[in-house]
Every structure is written in structure tokens, then in C-alpha cells.
């Protein structure tokens, strides 16, 4: 590129001026940008970050009535070591995750792939699968609780038509957790399905056309093209649904009564947190449980981040 004579005449002074100008424009841009995001950032700090620090601080305290607390150091964490309930709640949460996350993801991929085909009434099906997502969890829990009712529920009534005496779905300690898992999977499919659908639509048609010309069948197309190209989305969904599954509370709270015999075998970590924080007014210990849960989620998410290099294909 040849330099224009005029430009050579322009001395370095003017160049400096220009760069100064861009600098001031930049900083004023920053100012405006920050001002615009200030409401959100403020909310984030006040309602998310500050409570996290507070929770961390409170996990070293013991609470009395009406907001009085005293510093007790590591007492809450020592108490955790002997707390069999906590161990059990982690076990329950673990079982819940092992079933809901993989099954939920597999089912929603399958449904997303099927609904991505050219079939009649596609949008009707999409709406149907998405309906549970826009329904209040409380309403879902109440309806399922009724379906599950061992004496008067629809489920056991249908079973009785075949001469089978149905179990106590939400009261039998051996079954209750799995009953909740079914509801959780059912109500979570729609949300993940929509994310997978958008991921599927981002896969270029040319790949499929090329595969067709090469004579690949639908199954090998699915495993050789769809799955690898969908893997970033699968990764995203598996992280969000894992974190979500760790925090399960509402379904258990709504479907398992306080005096239910199945409570011990279904209560999740967050349920135990709730129990200590708001029922027993043991907010210090509850804060310690929350911190522990945060650490566990952090570690598992970090492991996922490391493992993704092995299976996630970005283009």
C-alpha cells in the first residue's frame, strides 16, 4: 500500500490527537455501558454475590432466636462429619442426579431429533412437550401426588384393573425417590428439548446431504453427524441440568409430607438445608450445608470442564 503524500505531511502531532480522541470516546462508551448494565449488576451484587459471602460467613456461626448469632468457628463443619442425615441426603441427591440427568438428556435428544423431522403437527407436539415447563412446579407436584395416591390415585386404579395392587408410590421409602425422579424427568424434558432443537437446526444441511450421497443410513447419520455436532449443546445442557438437579427441592417439598415415612429416604441436600434454616432455625448449620453444596457443585462442574475436551467437538 502506497502512502498518500498528504498523509506524510500530517505530522505525528495529529496522529496523537486522533488516538486521544478514540481514547476519550472509549472511556465515555465504557461509562455509558456500565451505566446501562448498572441496574442488573446492582441486583446481581445485592441478591446473588453478597448473600454468597454472607452465607460463607454465617457458616461459622450459631443462631439463636430472631437473628442473634455468635461466632463458633469450625463447629458447624465438625458437626457435619457426624451427621448421618447429611450423608443420606447427599446419597439421595446422588441417586436423583444419576437417574434424572442422563435419562433426561437422552430422552430430550431423542424427542428433539424426532420433532426435527418433517412430520405433520410438529408444532402441536413441541407445545405438548413444552407445557410442563411453563406449568408451576407446585401444580405439577399436586397433580402427580394425586395420581400417585395409593388408595384413590389414578395410577393404582389402572393397575387394579389388571388385578395388580399398586405400591405406595410416595410413601414407601424404597420407591418414593424413584417416583419423584419420574416426575422430574417428565417435567424437565421440554426445556432441554427446545435447546437441543435449536442446536439441531444449527447443523448445516450439507453434511446430511453428503452423508446421503455416501449412502449412510439414518442410524449412522445420527451417531456420526448429529451427535458429534450437537455435543457442545449436550455439554451445556448436562452442566445446567446437573446443577439444577443438585438443587432439587420443590418437588420433594410438595410431594412428600412432613410426617411422611418416606421423607428420610427422599430428602435432598437442599431440603435438609431448608429444614435446618427455616424449620429448626439452625441457620448457621444450614449455611454450612449450603457452602458444602457449593463446593461439591464447583468440583463436579470443574471435572466436567476438563472432561469436555475428550468428547465435545466445536466445529
Amino acid at each position: 500500500m502506497k502512502e498518500h503524500p498528504l498523509q506524510i505531511k500530517m505530522n505525528t502531532n495529529t496522529k496523537l490527537k486522533v488516538s486521544n480522541l478514540t481514547k476519550t470516546r472509549k472511556s465515555s462508551d465504557f461509562f455509558w455501558a456500565y451505566l446501562m448494565i448498572a441496574p442488573t449488576m446492582l441486583g446481581l451484587f445485592i441478591f446473588y454475590l453478597w448473600p454468597i459471602f454472607q452465607t460463607f460467613y454465617f457458616s461459622f456461626t450459631e443462631w439463636g432466636a430472631f437473628g442473634q448469632f455468635e461466632w463458633t468457628g469450625l463447629d458447624n463443619y465438625k458437626r457435619m462429619l457426624e451427621d448421618t442425615n447429611l450423608l443420606k441426603s447427599f446419597k439421595n441427591t446422588g441417586i436423583y442426579i444419576i437417574f434424572t440427568v442422563p435419562i433426561g438428556i437422552i430422552l430430550s435428544i431423542l424427542i428433539a431429533v424426532l420433532l426435527n423431522q418433517k412430520i405433520k403437527g410438529k408444532s402441536v407436539y413441541r407445545t405438548l412437550y413444552f407445557l410442563p415447563v411453563i406449568t408451576m412446579p407446585a401444580a405439577i407436584a399436586m397433580v402427580w401426588k394425586w395420581l400417585y395416591n395409593s388408595d384413590y390415585g389414578l395410577l393404582n386404579y389402572i393397575l387394579s384393573l389388571f388385578g395388580i395392587k399398586g405400591p405406595q408410590w410416595v410413601s414407601d421409602p424404597k420407591i418414593a425417590l424413584y417416583s419423584i425422579i419420574v416426575v422430574a424427568i417428565w417435567s424437565g424434558i421440554g426445556y432441554n428439548m427446545v435447546i437441543f432443537l435449536s442446536g439441531l437446526q444449527g447443523i448445516p444441511k450439507s453434511y446430511y446431504e453428503a452423508a446421503e450421497i455416501d449412502g449412510a443410513g439414518p442410524i449412522s447419520v445420527f451417531f456420526k453427524i448429529t451427535l458429534p455436532l450437537l455435543s457442545p449443546v449436550i455439554f451445556f445442557v448436562s452442566i445446567t441440568s446437573l446443577i439444577g438437579a443438585f438443587q432439587v427441592f420443590d418437588l420433594i417439598f410438595m410431594m412428600i409430607g412432613k410426617s411422611s415415612t418416606a421423607l428420610e429416604s427422599t430428602q435432598s441436600v437442599v431440603y435438609l438445608f431448608y429444614q435446618h434454616a427455616f424449620v429448626l432455625n439452625d441457620k448457621g448449620y444450614a449455611a454450612a450445608i449450603a457452602v458444602l453444596l457449593l463446593v461439591v457443585i464447583l468440583i463436579i462442574t470443574a471435572i466436567q470442564m476438563v472432561l469436555q475436551k475428550k468428547w465435545v467437538h466445536y466445529d
Binding site: K145, Y148, N149, S150, D151, Y152, Q168, V170, S171, D172, G257, S259, S260, T261, A262
Partner: peptide
């Protein structure tokens, strides 16, 4: 039973 009384 207790289970029945918590379900209904």
C-alpha cells in the same frame, strides 16, 4: 396406616 394418613 401412617402412610395412608399422610397421603390422604
Amino acid at each position: 396406616t401412617q402412610a395412608q394418613m399422610t397421603e390422604t
